[in-house]
Simulated assay, not measured.
Amino acid sequence: MFDSHCHYDDHAFDEDRYEVLDRLLCDPDSPVDKVCHAATDEQSSLFGIETAKRYENFYTSVGFHPECMDTLPEDYMQKLDELYVKACSTHKLVAIGEIGLDYHYEGYDKDKQIKLFDKQVEYAVKKSLPVIVHCREATQDCLDVLNKYAPSGVVHCFSGSAETAEIVLGLGMYIGFTGALAFKNAKKARRALGVVPMDRLLLETDCP
């Protein structure tokens, strides 16, 4: 099994991070063979790069999540390029992400989010890397950017409609589902699951 989306840099793992990773990635009885760290900002990207050096079966991405807008460096595309170079040295860089749009919380700056997302998707396509896309309550704006560049990659933790899932699949992308699929109010996501072929389906822990 390959967990395609996880966040082992989260504070929930501060007490036993490497004990958990040792059990997960070094124990021959572990059901998980590989993981992909989904970076969310500069520090998270650096964590992924360093941890990829430590574990043979730990892969990583680099990128800036929409929720990091308040701490986003002005030269974020230069930073992204620097992170890309560092990550390439590990030979474990597999994506640009976690990037996208999130309009759930009050006070979001829509235009800044779209600009950040657009530039990172464009960068991923230029580097021939897939994207890990976060889309929350921003479906049409997200699809507009994906249609513009037609990247490879995954729309992760999918919560959209079956119709939206079909559009994403039509772009050639994968669709990822997390444990949220089991929530009682996730009926829409379960209907979307019904249109996703097995060879385009990813299951993610999105841990923690």
Rank of each mutant, 00 (worst) to 15 (best):
A95Q: 01
C142E: 02
Y76D: 03
H134V: 11
I96V: 15
A138I: 10
V121D: 05
N147Q: 12
I49T: 06
D81F: 01
P130R: 03
I96A: 05
E50H: 09
G100K: 04
V131W: 07
C68D: 04
T139E: 15
L143T: 08
I96M: 06
S152F: 08
D81A: 11
V121R: 02
E137C: 08
K148L: 09
H65Y: 06
S61T: 15
V35A: 05
V131C: 13
L129W: 07
D29V: 06
V32T: 10
D27Y: 05
Y105D: 00
M77V: 01
D27V: 07
G153M: 12
L116A: 09
Y108Q: 03
E122G: 11
K110M: 06
D75H: 09
Y108M: 03
H156F: 08
K119H: 12
E56D: 12
I99H: 02
A52V: 12
C142V: 03
S152C: 08
L93H: 04
L93T: 01
N57C: 03
T40V: 15
T60L: 09
E42A: 12
V145S: 03
C26H: 07
P31K: 08
L72F: 09
E106Q: 13
D22R: 05
A150Q: 15
H37N: 13
K86I: 00
L24H: 05
A52H: 04
Y108G: 00
P73D: 10
Y76W: 04
L101E: 01
V32L: 08
I99W: 00
L25H: 05
I49M: 03
K53P: 00
K92F: 11
V85M: 00
A95W: 10
A87Y: 07
H91E: 14
R23F: 01
Y55C: 05
E122W: 04
E74D: 15
F64T: 01
Y84D: 01
I96L: 05
S128T: 10
